[in-house]
Simulated scan of single mutants.
Amino acid sequence: MKNSALLFVGGVRSGKSGLAVRWAERQAQRRLFLATCKPQDAEMAERVAAHRAERGVGWQCVEETMNPQGVLRALAAARSDDGPGVLLLDCVSMWVANMLTAGLTRDVALDKVAALAAYLVAVGIPIALVSSETGLGLVAPTSLGRQFQNALGRANQMLAGACGTVIFVSCGLPVALKGALPEELC
């Protein structure tokens, strides 16, 4: 089966989520948004609300902060004509942060990322993943920050290897790092 999974990676506020939504909306009428963020404060709640407002009709949202690979596993097992035609997971970086702050080790977190990567093709529908690029910034000054950067950097590498297309986003502009830039983003 062809790997139609895309990884959108870029800095915070680079435009990666908006481009991923635009791509997904051109793939299918029924879309599943797999959200990994659990707002912890008012500012993050506003961010989540803004992201929701960007999405048009035709979106179903599932919030799963710790086990998005379980949602993919269930979709792969269910495969039905009335299910979603595309899935957008936003975002890998929040998911990794959730796992680390819950006390999971880097190795356990990366095992979960590997499990998600294994289901990218099995689901049988186009999938887009969104993640932040930590490799362009400063080394974090705290131990937890460095653990996060190291885990997310490795997770991004694993997912980039598993995806057929990898799109780097900067200033709202997409650049294909792997595969061809989808026509919907040109």
Score class of each variant (00 low, 15 high):
C163R: 02
G124F: 02
V9M: 07
T65Q: 13
R52N: 09
S80W: 02
G10D: 05
E46W: 01
N3M: 00
I167G: 09
K112E: 14
M158D: 01
G11F: 10
Q149E: 07
V21A: 10
R55L: 10
E46P: 03
L100W: 01
V96P: 04
K112H: 12
K178H: 00
T142D: 01
S80F: 04
L110D: 04
A28M: 13
R26C: 13
D111L: 00
F168G: 02
A49E: 14
L152F: 03
V175G: 03
Q27I: 10
V12D: 03
A50K: 14
D41L: 11
S4C: 05
G161Q: 00
L144C: 05
F33Q: 08
G15H: 05
L181T: 06
E46Y: 01
G172F: 01
M94K: 05
P39L: 15
A151L: 08
A109W: 05
V166R: 00
L152K: 04
P68W: 04
A5P: 03
A109E: 00
E46H: 05
W59T: 11
R22I: 01
C37F: 08
R52A: 13
S143R: 15
H51G: 10
F33C: 05
A128N: 00
L181R: 04
F168C: 07
V121I: 00
A140C: 00
Q60E: 15
E63P: 05
P39G: 14
L185R: 12
L89T: 12
Q69E: 15
G58E: 06
L89R: 12
V96A: 05
K16W: 12
M99H: 09
V12S: 15
V9T: 15
D81R: 14
V92H: 07
A162W: 06
M99S: 11
R22C: 02
G153E: 04
A77I: 02
V92R: 09
T101F: 15
E64Y: 05
D41A: 12
S17R: 03
A78W: 04
M66H: 14
